[in-house]
Design a binder for these strands. Structure first.
Length: 430
DNA sequence: TCTGGGGTCCTAGGACCC
DNA sequence: TCTGGGGTCCTAGGACCC
């Protein structure tokens, strides 16, 4: 049986999450803003119809927002993350072969589990109905014989009401498929970004059909193996398999713009400590250690009239570690060497690189167990830290270097309650 | 006043090995 | 006169994704 992939994706995901708990807003124009309330990262259909683009800066939209009474929410990733997990649980009941591709999209292998022989449309409608009933979230489903085709099918389902949210390319004749591919811009293809789109246009490749009909070898010589695979995938040759087990991360980043400019080293120290705590908790969650820590510091690039400073430094630890205390110490050391007084800083962040599975703990050249950073005491302490913070909330237990000042915290002026994860923020039904 | 955050993969070129 | 062949590893930069 040849492969059939489904791509399920939640429409306007963040907006839809907010609407679950504020049903009176189901028809209001709405946006969800990025961290720091910077720009629109999710738009309701009403807002899209007004011509507001993805990533539009909020402060530049004030006028149109007032005129059309656009409701803006600050992003609430605790809520979206939890809702996302719930969607995945529902999807898992339809197929055990699932790849969680992003917070609002999953690929499923469905050829052996579709209960409606040869009717993937009915299968897709069943998925839609269940997610809607259980979670009140609208999804679209696309079916195709490769991931790239499933993505394309999903795009058609989303943009063309006659599909009623489900599109199965397998049900199309060759001519029908070509017609649809002819109608859609090549920029919509998964893997074709802005640059490739420009270069393809120079070759006269403008529609999905143009790319599908291009010679894979030629595409490879001009653009590389990645786009060659895309061409093959568009022709139903599955090159990208389902990654049902998420591979461990190769790097972990934590960074944030400040709500307002920061000038002082102590405040930066608190921010860096926060990012280390954040990143190393994720590090321990995947049972890994880090040996490379990169710390960076940035001024506001949107204010060229202010003096700019944009630097980062990498430090290599003598021994791999996952201990927040150790990593914090090194990171603060780097920060102190990086810091120059007199600048208005806008952003800082920490990257953990050189990640290794914890099981691979390596002794140093002299074979000594000088590796006190991975001592049993450290292990236990970190486990304790994570479990307390897991139970009572992030930041319940923290290093003193994280401080208590909120001087650097991001703006988040209209965040909704964390309805599904915090007892004191549960929705109340009158 | 105001401009997000977190990732992956591929390629080319340099340095080095025998 | 004259200068091979086959590799690996690392890094920086560029492209992409959501």
């Amino acid at each position: 049986m040849s492969a059939v992939f489904a791509l399920v994706d939640v429409n306007n995901f963040y907006v839809s999450c907010e609407r679950v708990f504020q049903p009176r807003l189901k028809r209001s124009p709405m946006v969800v803003l990025s961290n720091n309330d910077g720009c629109a990262v999710a738009r309701s259909n009403e807002v899209k119809a007004l011509g507001v683009k993805m990533g539009a800066t909020w402060f530049k939209m004030r006028e149109i927002a007032q005129e059309h009474r656009i409701v803006a929410f600050s992003s609430n990733y605790t809520l979206y993350g939890d809702m996302s997990n719930r969607v995945v649980e529902v999807l898992r009941s339809f197929s055990p072969d699932i790849e969680v591709y992003s917070i609002d999209e999953s690929f499923l292998r469905v050829e052996s589990v579709c209960p409606w022989q040869a009717s993937y449309r009915a299968f897709g409608q069943a998925i839609r109905a269940k997610v809607l009933q259980w979670l009140d979230l609208p999804v679209c489903v696309g079916f195709g014989s490769s991931k790239t085709l499933a993505k394309f099918a999903n795009h058609l389902a989303k943009k063309n009401p006659q599909f009623e949210g489900v599109c199965d390319l397998g049900a199309f004749s060759n001519n029908e498929l070509e017609d649809w591919m002819r109608k859609v811009d090549v920029a919509e293809v998964w893997g074709v970004g802005r640059k490739l789109n420009e270069k393809l246009a120079q070759l006269g490749i403008r529609s999905v059909a143009d790319l599908a009909q291009a010679d894979p070898k030629r595409i490879r010589s001009l653009f590389g193996v990645v786009l060659e695979r895309t061409v093959l995938e568009l022709n139903g040759v599955s090159c990208l398999s389902l990654e049902d087990i998420a591979p461990p991360k190769k790097q972990i980043i934590s960074s944030r713009s400040f709500g307002q400019a920061v000038v002082s080293l102590p405040v930066l120290t608190e921010a860096v400590s926060f990012h280390v705590a954040n990143a190393s908790q994720k590090l321990r969650a995947q049972h890994a250690t880090t040996q490379g820590i990169y710390v960076f510091l940035q001024t506001n690039r949107f204010k060229p009239e202010e003096p700019q400073y944009n630097e980062g430094k990498l430090i290599t630890l003598p021994n791999p570690s996952d201990d927040t205390r150790v990593i914090t110490q090194f990171a603060i050391n780097v920060l102190e060497r990086l810091y120059r007084p007199g600048f208005k800083y806008k952003k800082t962040g920490v990257m953990l690189l050189d990640l290794q599975p914890r099981a691979h703990d390596q002794m140093n050249l002299f074979g000594a167990v000088v590796n006190s950073t991975n001592s049993p005491q450290s292990l236990q302490l970190m486990r304790c830290l994570d479990s307390i913070n897991g139970r009572y909330g992030r930041g319940t237990l923290k290093l003193a270097t994280m401080g208590v000042s909120k001087a650097w915290e991001m703006r988040s002026e209209n965040r909704s309650p964390r309805y599904t994860t915090h007892w004191d923020e549960l929705p109340i039904v009158d």
